[in-house]
Amino acid sequence: MWTRVNDFDRMFGAMDLLRSRMNRVFGDPDRSYGNDYGWVVAEGAPRTNLYDAGNHFEIKAEVPGLTKEDLNLRIQGNYLEISGNRKADAPEGYKAHRVERAAGSFTRSFTLPADVDTEKVEASLKDGILTLTLPKAEAAKPKQITIN
C-alpha cells in the first residue's frame, strides 16, 4: 500500500542506485587503464575546468608530475595557451612491470569568454593542479546598474 511519497522515493532511490551502478559497469569497464581518469596525453592535453567568478576567471588543469619549469603559459587578449612537457620518470636500472602514465608534450589553447587583463594573470601549481587566475578586463566586468 503506497501511503506516502516517501515510499515512492525509496523505490526510485533504489532503482537510481542500481541504474548508476549498471551504467558504470557497461560504460567503461576498462576505465582504470584508459584515458578516462588518467593523464590525457593521448587526446592531446590535460583536463581543465573553467570557472567564472564575476571579476575573474579561474582555470584549473590536471598536470600531475609536472614542475613549473615544464609548463609554458601564453596569453593574448582572450586567447590562452597552455603547453608543457611531461618527462618520463622511469628510474634507472629498474625493469618495468606496468607503464600506464604517458609522457610527452602537449598544447592546449582556449578562447576565453571575455578579454582578460594580461598583466595581472597569476598562476600557481600545487599537488599537480595548475590554477590560473585571470582578472577580466574592465569592459568585461559585471556592472551594477541602478534604476532611476
Binding site: 576505465r31 581518469y37 593523464w39 622511469a90 618495468a96
Partner: peptide
Amino acid sequence: VAPVVDIYEDNDEIL
C-alpha cells in the same frame, strides 16, 4: 576511479 600507475622493480625493491 583507479589512478594510472607505473610499476618498476629492481633487485632491492618494487617501486
